[in-house]
Amino acid sequence: MAALPSRPLLLRGLAWAWLGGLVLAALWAWQTGSAQPAATQLDLSQLSLPPSARHWLGTDPFGRDVLAVLLAGTRNLLAVSLPAALVATALGASLGAAAGYWGNRGLRVRRAAVVVIMFSVVGALVTGPQLLPRWLLAGALGATAAHYLPLRATWPLPLDRLVLAAGAFTASVPRLVLALLLAALHAPSKPWLLAVLAGTCWPPTARLSRTLVAQLRRQPYIEAGRAAGFSDWRILWRHLLPNAKPALRASLPLNLTVCFGLQTTLSFLGIGLPPDELDWGRTLADARLEPSAWWLTVGGLFFLTCTMAALHLLSATDSRNGTPHSTLKTADQRVTNKD
């Protein structure tokens, strides 16, 4: 196992600089807001021109400057793909950690509370929709009351099984088909896209986090913490998650790649964001309209690759500081354990 070269400082600096530049570009795009910047105005006399002194990266099939479009597109990258990747990672990490920590038997719920909640849900469904809020309110109150009753009988909550089933559920319908179906229900908008991306990307992270936590849980220091009477939350939050963090952080760029890829493909299939919402995926998808316009592909790919490279570099070097590969390894190995 050779040592890694000692030039990461320069690379890391470059990576940080690139990401910082993107954030600046996004801020610029935000600040100009809905008033379209002059550079991204449609100019029908300049359709699909190759790079020149005036348009460094050429113009797209709508006569807009590709560089300006890409810079303005960072806004949607930061407003949609990045939050979606963050949400997917957070959702996956927390669901997976809960499933891994408590398993199928660890978390128990009051029988009385479950009965009350079930009763109110069935009641809400059977009666008309106008009574729905009342039933839900009654259910919540009843469940709280049941908590204080002397009925101490509990049922185990099969958390692990539930999370895995939900993961299997989302993973079984192909993402694109799901997106097509959802597009039929609601016109694509930013919150919609964010929800679709986050809702379909979380299962791999959940599986990773679940196996990590399940394994760490059996480490002696966690057992000691439990023996010392620490609460579950404290153990999870203060002891387990910090140890699982490097691996989870490494999964963020992967999720971002997936989110971004899906967003781009939706643009390609014509069900992405509206055309006045600029994003990189759309620029790449426009290249299909004008196959001879290589500058569209080159420009889009340059931005995309640099960003992905920077993210991978930063997450990889970060994870190396802590408990690097042993965590990743065990994670990946334990992923195989069971679904």
């Binding site: 070269p5 790649t257 493909t265 992905m308 991978h312």
Partner: peptide, 24 residues
């Protein structure tokens, strides 16, 4: 290790490419 150093950036690049771009 030198393979590793050379291939990993390429792998990340390929991984981030949308499929239709590669196809086209």
């Amino acid at each position: 290790p030198q393979w590793y150093r050379r291939f990993v950036p390429v792998a990340y690049l390929l991984d981030s490419l949308p499929l239709f771009v590669v196809g086209m």
